[in-house]
């Protein structure tokens, strides 16, 4: 039998086998085939690692060496871990401080680049550019820009006579936090801008035109047309921004190294430290599971508050 004939034979047999199924069964099978890649992806990259993390969290699991089952000890230890609670507190304070500027600035930028006028693409690209740089690279860039000897910030502030001598931005907890926020806003605002821009552009112009006819001003249009119609986009932008902030790590690990005086250790940084520096993988896993629970709760609340109400 030639190769072509063999293939034809196989195709025929498969068809016959499929034909023996009812319409309903075939529909289910087709549906299953369509979702199969996603199911596989989610299983391999989410469900299995999650199950492993849960499993690890009930063990004393050193990075190297033997593991042993310790039940819920890792979870009870968490309540006594002062740095864990301090890191949670710091992470939430950081999230509360960093989310509004990213959102408001993103919204202003989106409004500015909304209309398709000449050269607008250049501005959209410039605002979006920092997003494509890796957070690690941008953090190193910021270390350099913040340096007291060669950094551009000190140079500008000195030239403007706003400071008398070069400042050590990372020496105090407050200034360290502020410069981190500044660097993150610079790095991520472009992404929020693009999300909000898509939302803005999906609002039909006719609504604004009729509002103009009714004599509505800018803020009235913003309150009664723009914001209500962008509810879904705003929800998405805020949820992504909040999740990103709660999971912040690179900027603290690279720029401040958790300092000064351990004042900028985010929760993921503390999980990393326990898992890889102190080799307590089981404890790190337990912290990750608790963090996952917190994130699910936070996202649910956000989703509920910003849900469609009509």
């Amino acid at each position: 039998m030639s190769a072509a004939a063999r293939e034809k034979d196989i195709a025929l047999r498969m068809t016959l086998r499929l034909e023996s199924l009812s319409w309903e069964q075939r529909r289910k099978l087709t549906g299953l085939l369509f979702v199969l890649p996603t199911v596989l992806f989610v299983t391999v990259f989410f469900i299995i690692p999650l199950a492993m993390t849960v499993f690890m969290s009930f063990h004393d699991w050193p990075l190297i060496g033997e593991q042993s089952w310790i039940g819920t000890t890792n979870y009870t230890e968490l309540a006594k871990d002062r740095q864990y609670l301090k890191s949670l507190d710091f992470t939430f304070r950081y999230t509360i401080l960093v989310t509004p500027p990213i959102f408001i600035l993103g919204f202003i930028l989106a409004s500015l680049v909304r209309h398709n006028i000449r050269f607008i693409g250049i501005f959209r690209t410039i605002f979006f550019l920092p997003v494509v740089i890796g957070l690690g690279v941008s953090s190193l860039l910021w270390i350099w820009m913040l340096d007291q000897r060669v950094g551009i910030f000190n140079k500008i502030l000195l030239d403007l006579h706003l400071i008398a001598k070069p400042q050590l931005f990372l020496a105090k907890p407050t200034t360290a936090m502020n410069v981190i926020i500044l660097s993150v806003v610079w790095k991520t605002v472009g992404f929020t801008m693009i999300l909000l821009l898509a939302g803005l552009q999906s609002i039909p112009d006719e609504l604004y035109e009729s509002a103009d006819v009714d004599g509505a001003g800018y803020f009235r249009k913003l309150l009664y047309i723009t914001l209500p119609l962008m509810r879904r986009t705003i929800a998405l932008a805020l949820i992504l921004s909040v999740i990103g902030s709660v999971l912040a790590f690179d900027q603290f690990y690279i720029i401040t190294r958790g300092g000064p005086r351990n004042s900028t250790i985010s929760i993921v940084y503390w999980i990393f430290n326990n898992s890889f520096t102190y080799w307590k993988m089981g404890y790190g896993a337990a912290m990750s599971i608790v963090l996952l629970g917190i994130l699910v709760a936070l996202t649910s609340v956000q989703y509920y508050v910003l849900r469609e109400r009509y």
Binding site: G258, I265, Y269, N273, T277, Y278
Partner: peptide, 14 residues
């Protein structure tokens, strides 16, 4: 030793 002395977030430096 690492957790006590060398860790940048450890008690020695703090």
């Amino acid at each position: 030793y690492n957790d006590l002395f060398n860790d940048p977030n450890g008690p020695w430096l703090e």
